[in-house]
Amino acid sequence: MFAYLVRRLLQFIPVLIGVTFLVFSLTLLLPGDPVASLLGLSEGQAQVDAEMVQRYRHELGLDQPVPVQYGMWLGRAVRGDFGDSIKTRRPVADEILPRLKVTAQVSVAALIVSLLIALPAGVAGAVWRNSWLDRLITMLAVAAVAVPSFWLAIMMILLFAVQWQVLPPSGFVSPFDDPVRGLKLMVMPVLILGWEGAAVLTRQTRSAMLEVLSQDYVRTARAKGLAGRRVIWVHALKNAMLPIITILGLRIGLLLGGSAIVETIFTIPGIGRLLVSSISTRDFPVIQALVLVIGLSTVVASLLTDIAYALLDPRIRYR
């Protein structure tokens, strides 16, 4: 167990370096002079402001060899210094932090919704395998991921907000500040984000449950006369949770990706919307920092998932 954790942590280090280097290298991929992009200048303006560009290039170490540049960039990144946003001229970190909280709230809510849909649906599918219910659930799960989420979002706004007027069309208020309005505003975005995850999780839950239900100890439990419901929900599901946790870990990254679309449509001030608006204003320092934040959250989530897995599953320890 301990050895496994150490190995996993050791593996984490090169990944961390790789992720940061990949994000750093976006600068190298920029067409034209990267300094101009970092300053938000067009090439023409950069020629006019050549002196400033030169000074900035030196300050950022962009006149140094690539490994040195990377080192300097990493040093600044570790201190939370990603430069200033081109659009707002404020430090990038100040732009990102408050939005990270918002995205976290929406993502956690979406994960909960995913689980609330997927666990019952997956278990039902496994227990009544090949029944009409199972087929319907499977069909819905496949169909759910075939609809572009932005299409779904617009349709929901037109129906629930404009047509039936049961939900506010867009916006965000933290449910901790104003529970009623906050939750109402969250319904549509969270359903759309959670729906996609539910589709994947349902399939995973179903196959994990099928696996567990065919195991001897479940059969034994049933044979011993334990009530079916208890066997399924306590014994079987507990064991089926392991692979589901893995998928949950991967969902974190996908949720952050999906938030770009959902946050843009529902005008939620999270990092997804910030990424999209930064791309349209070519706010490169913000784009770079956001990609880094998302990349890091994903690898950290996957590390934590692996650790949780190891703690929960005794077999891992002997590998």
Partner: peptide, 18 residues
């Protein structure tokens, strides 16, 4: 003053009185 980038969503907000 709210920034609502999508035209359809902005119109929806006006229609609902938000």
């Amino acid at each position: 003053i709210q920034a609502i980038p999508d035209d359809t969503v902005r119109f929806a907000n006006l229609q609902t009185g938000d």
